[in-house]
Amino acid sequence: MALSLARAAFNAIREKGVGGALRSAKEQGYLAALLDGNLANEKFRFDGQLIGTDDFGNEYYEKTTGVQHGRHRWVVYKDRTYNASSIPPEWHGWLHHITDRTAEQLEGLKPRRYGIEHTRNRTGEGEQYIYHAKGHALNPNKRDWKRYQEWIPAE
């Protein structure tokens, strides 16, 4: 792994120069991965085969030979703030070996009538993401006792 990492860095510097290589490393999230061990563990693994990318930019890799069973599929998160809910349900199945089909192959399974876009869990990311009941003081749409609709003089 260390060898492949060094080779990749060497190639990049030879192509773009030191400054260009650093810039492209930042754009591709390698510098961020240096500060996050979990991220680095997947990001600096160059021997996998890219299986697909979801709508959020997360990349899904697989290496079928020469790895311990159960560690042959992994995800490289796009975002620096990530958690398990960053993965949409269609990729969740693939990643956790529930199915061998990828999201593209499962495309038709999403319910058309009531299926909604996946959003990740935003817990702890700010006041606006906290659910307040309809009568809660912090709910911006708090219900009041007004039960009529006033006339608006339109021209």
């Binding site: 006033e150 006339w151 003089p153």
Partner: peptide
Amino acid sequence: GLKRQRLNEPLIRSADGQL
């Protein structure tokens, strides 16, 4: 109909024709 289109405050037509 008692809950819709209600007049709830006094209105005056101003010089520009708006209430």
